[in-house]
Design a protein around this nucleic acid. Structure first.
Length: 183
DNA sequence: GAAGGTCAAGCGCA
DNA sequence: CTGCGCTTGACCTT
């Protein structure tokens, strides 16, 4: 347990699946419907530093291994997941700023399950109040990170950029979206 | 419909 | 090398 609270806190399983499965998933998910996004930044528009894809549960192309992934996630972190979000960090310049998942879009008490594939990347986790001691967690391929709803209130997380040469990493995030946000 | 939060890059400093 | 806090603004949410 990386962070403790009464909903399970933040839990990390480095060996969620073995390397062969992780590699196969990573390869198959290249075929997802990856989209670039852009955002305004001062007087210019910049690319969001990662590629994004997302599906409602069961609405993904059958060729994607998401059904298998979801079944395995269910064994360790059972919940009525109704959405998946995928992020592709192409190299060390790709990142996500520190943030927490929007509580209003997640069912109360429901976990968020994140599977990592491809190269390892370091995730920074930090308490939002009090002593702002940060925790670094290396998210390895084939690992599972489960974050409680409550932990989103107390902690924020992000994937910082790095100068170290790194290959692509993918995260596959299963969530229980509230009614009005679910498709 | 007003108001508040988000989150991109780059900078300076620790 | 890396972390952090600051900055603006279009868009989203309440």
């Amino acid at each position: 347990m990386v962070v403790a609270d009464d909903e399970g806190g933040i839990r990390y399983w480095p060996d969620f699946v073995d390397a062969q499965i992780a590699d196969a998933w990573f390869a198959a998910l290249q075929a997802a419907d990856w989209k670039e996004q852009r955002r305004p930044m001062y007087d210019r528009v910049v690319d969001v530093p990662r590629l994004l894809a997302g599906y409602a549960t069961g609405q993904w192309p059958p060729a994607l291994p998401l059904t298998d992934m979801l079944q395995r996630v269910q064994r360790l972190a059972p919940a009525d997941y109704n959405a998946v979000g995928l992020n592709l960090y192409r190299d060390g310049r790709d990142s996500v700023a520190m943030h927490n998942d929007k509580l209003h879009t997640i069912g109360p008490g429901q976990p968020i399950a994140l599977v990592s594939l491809g190269d390892s990347r370091r995730m920074r986790i930090r308490a939002k109040t009090g002593p702002r001691a940060g925790i670094d967690l290396v998210l390895e391929p084939g690992s599972l990170l489960v974050m409680s709803h409550a932990s989103q209130l107390t902690h924020e997380h992000g994937i910082p950029k790095t100068v170290r040469p790194v290959g692509p990493r993918m995260s596959v995030v299963f969530r229980v979206r509230s009614e009005k946000y679910a498709h």
